[in-house]
Amino acid sequence: MPKTLKDIKHVLDSNLGKRLTLKANGGRRKTIERSGVLAETYPAVFVIELDQEENSFERVSYSYADILTETVQLTFFDETSGSMALSGQ
């Protein structure tokens, strides 16, 4: 798992356009699981376009600090090598 915000942003930049599964802390012992594509990265946040069959809204954004504090866990799927986890594993 990357140790700094800069490292996290660099890893996400290299995975733009890849499919992923998102696990996020929803509060009150609730975990949210969604799937989609990493669409964009900005200096402080990243944007995920969600699959429309499963979700009522199109996009979500999180900060790099959410990954650092393990509030958000991303698992990227790569067709050639299987899946790889970014954080929390």
Rank of each mutant, 00 (worst) to 15 (best):
38 L>G: 02
4 T>D: 05
46 F>S: 06
41 T>I: 13
31 T>P: 00
14 S>L: 13
9 K>C: 04
18 K>L: 10
78 D>P: 05
47 V>L: 13
78 D>M: 05
35 S>F: 14
11 V>W: 05
83 S>E: 12
74 L>Y: 04
54 E>G: 05
73 Q>N: 10
28 R>S: 09
67 I>F: 00
33 E>W: 07
3 K>V: 07
24 A>F: 04
22 L>M: 14
29 R>H: 14
38 L>D: 01
60 V>N: 02
64 Y>G: 00
88 G>L: 06
37 V>R: 15
37 V>Q: 11
58 E>L: 10
25 N>Q: 01
78 D>S: 11
83 S>W: 01
29 R>Y: 08
41 T>N: 13
82 G>E: 02
52 Q>S: 15
42 Y>E: 13
56 S>I: 09
62 Y>T: 02
81 S>M: 04
12 L>R: 06
88 G>W: 00
18 K>A: 06
88 G>K: 08
42 Y>T: 13
67 I>A: 01
62 Y>R: 09
30 K>V: 02
22 L>T: 08
69 T>N: 15
80 T>D: 12
2 P>H: 07
57 F>G: 12
16 L>N: 13
72 V>I: 10
40 E>F: 06
39 A>L: 15
33 E>V: 13
87 S>K: 07
77 F>T: 15
55 N>A: 12
52 Q>I: 11
20 L>N: 10
43 P>H: 03
83 S>G: 07
79 E>S: 15
52 Q>V: 12
5 L>I: 15
74 L>K: 03
30 K>F: 01
44 A>M: 11
30 K>W: 00
86 L>S: 01
59 R>A: 03
47 V>S: 09
31 T>D: 03
9 K>D: 03
10 H>L: 14
14 S>K: 14
89 Q>M: 07
15 N>E: 15
1 M>I: 02
63 S>Q: 10
61 S>A: 10
82 G>N: 05
42 Y>M: 11
73 Q>E: 12
14 S>N: 14
48 I>P: 00
36 G>Q: 12
72 V>W: 00
76 F>I: 14
12 L>I: 09
66 D>G: 01
88 G>T: 05
86 L>E: 00
26 G>T: 02
61 S>R: 08
47 V>T: 13
87 S>L: 05
16 L>Q: 13
37 V>T: 15
68 L>W: 09
50 L>W: 11
60 V>F: 01
15 N>S: 15
52 Q>Y: 12
87 S>Q: 03
83 S>I: 04
6 K>S: 09
50 L>S: 10
24 A>R: 01
30 K>G: 00
81 S>E: 06
53 E>T: 13
86 L>T: 01
51 D>S: 11
19 R>I: 12
19 R>F: 14
17 G>W: 04
11 V>I: 07
74 L>I: 15
34 R>C: 08
16 L>C: 13
54 E>Y: 11
69 T>M: 06
79 E>T: 14
82 G>Y: 04
41 T>G: 07
40 E>T: 09
4 T>R: 02
76 F>N: 08
4 T>M: 03
38 L>P: 00
67 I>L: 15
48 I>W: 01
78 D>E: 12
45 V>S: 10
84 M>G: 03
61 S>Y: 11
50 L>H: 06
14 S>Q: 14
9 K>Y: 03
45 V>N: 12
15 N>Q: 15
45 V>G: 02
78 D>W: 05
88 G>A: 08
